[in-house]
């Protein structure tokens, strides 16, 4: 997902009897479905985990601008250009909302950005894959945003108020993202032989990386259990992945495209598809920096940040000058 394998600092999920009184009251509020607000008492682990998770989510939005931004200047029609630009702009907005949510927890946006650039925070593995053809823009909208929405919709109910409100806004805005992706795929799938080839190639390359977005199985993970107890994670990775596959198979069939998995078959008993696991060794390689585009992505972000520093400093300096002049005049 946009936030993958977030650690919680927990060795085990403690039951109520092992908690302090404050922790018990806190857990009871969460169990009652109350929202936790920034000024409320919260366990240090909850605060730290949320900073990691929301920060990672925000970083993913910002780094996620890059693979799609790669095609803004090459979009094939003026309307597609406008749509893609509006969509990538939305990602910047979503990053902004999420950084603000993280900031309510006592960390600044600049600090988070610097942690990302220092390699101390992560972003979603998916954005380390390249967008090689226009069909990739369709497939990213269809599959990547599709997978993201699957995770973000339940997160609207997350226990931390600012995170929940950011997710509500993001889900509302994101509803067009997946549809515009599928719209591109429909055009490609019904287009020329070359366009169909691009569409199938995009699905072939992005299918498993999309499945990886949900992260490895976490049904036995203590971090996952702790996050779920805190309601900052709502479903297990496997649940979401299954739901994603079940939803996507018929969409691929409608396009006349083949999902690159020979083991894909309907399982009546579980009421869902059986499918092949992605290659998790590839996933861990990508996370550790060896994906096809890790270096380019980070270089692009660092370059924008460093080359922009004179602008940020100058605008602040001008504002300070004006404020000083105003104070002097009073």
């Amino acid at each position: 997902m946009y936030a993958q394998m977030v650690k919680t600092d927990a060795n085990k999920v403690r039951d109520l009897s092992e908690m302090t009184e404050e922790e018990r009251a806190f857990q009871a509020r969460i169990d009652r479905g109350e929202k936790i607000e920034p000024t409320d008492w919260m366990p240090e682990g909850y605060r730290k985990t949320l900073i990691r998770q929301i920060g990672q989510h925000a970083h993913s939005e910002i780094v996620g601008q890059l693979p799609e931004g790669n095609w803004i200047t090459r979009a094939p029609t003026l309307e597609r250009k406008a749509i893609l630009l509006a969509k990538v702009q939305d990602e910047a907005g979503h990053g902004l909302y999420l950084y603000c949510a993280a900031e309510t927890l006592g960390v600044s946006r600049d600090e988070l950005i610097e942690l990302l650039h220092a390699g101390k925070m992560k972003y979603s593995s998916i954005f380390n894959y390249p967008t090689l053809t226009w069909a990739d823009i369709g497939a990213v909208g269809w599959l990547v945003d599709g997978a993201a929405i699957m995770n973000q919709v339940p997160l609207q109910r997350t226990s931390f108020g600012p995170y929940s409100r950011a997710m509500i806004r993001i889900c509302k805005e994101e509803s067009f993202h997946q549809r515009q992706g599928y719209d591109i795929m429909m055009k490609m799938a019904n287009g020329t032989a070359e366009q169909r080839r691009m569409a199938q190639d995009a699905l072939d390359r992005l299918w498993y990386p999309s499945l990886m977005m949900f992260g490895p199985s976490d049904k036995d993970s203590v971090h996952s259990a702790q996050s779920m107890a805190w309601k900052i994670k709502i479903n297990t990775n496997d649940e979401l992945r299954q739901k994603f596959v079940d939803q996507t198979v018929s969409q691929a069939e409608y396009l006349g495209l083949t999902i690159p998995d020979e083991n894909l078959s309907w399982n009546d008993e579980k009421g869902g598809y059986d499918f092949s696991e992605p290659d998790w060794s590839e996933f861990f390689e990508v996370l550790s920096g060896n994906g096809p585009c890790n270096r380019e992505r980070m270089e692009a972000r660092v370059k924008a940040w460093e080359e922009g520093s004179w602008v940020r400093d100058a605008l602040m300096a001008h504002a300070n000058k004006k404020e000083a002049a105003k104070t002097a005049a009073e």
């Binding site: 910002i62 803004i72 990538v88 702009q89 910047a92 990053g95 924008a304 602008v311 940020r312």
Partner: peptide, 9 residues
């Protein structure tokens, strides 16, 4: 061309 590369969000 700036989209994703500006000095600040």
């Amino acid at each position: 061309e700036w989209c994703g590369h500006s000095p600040v969000l």
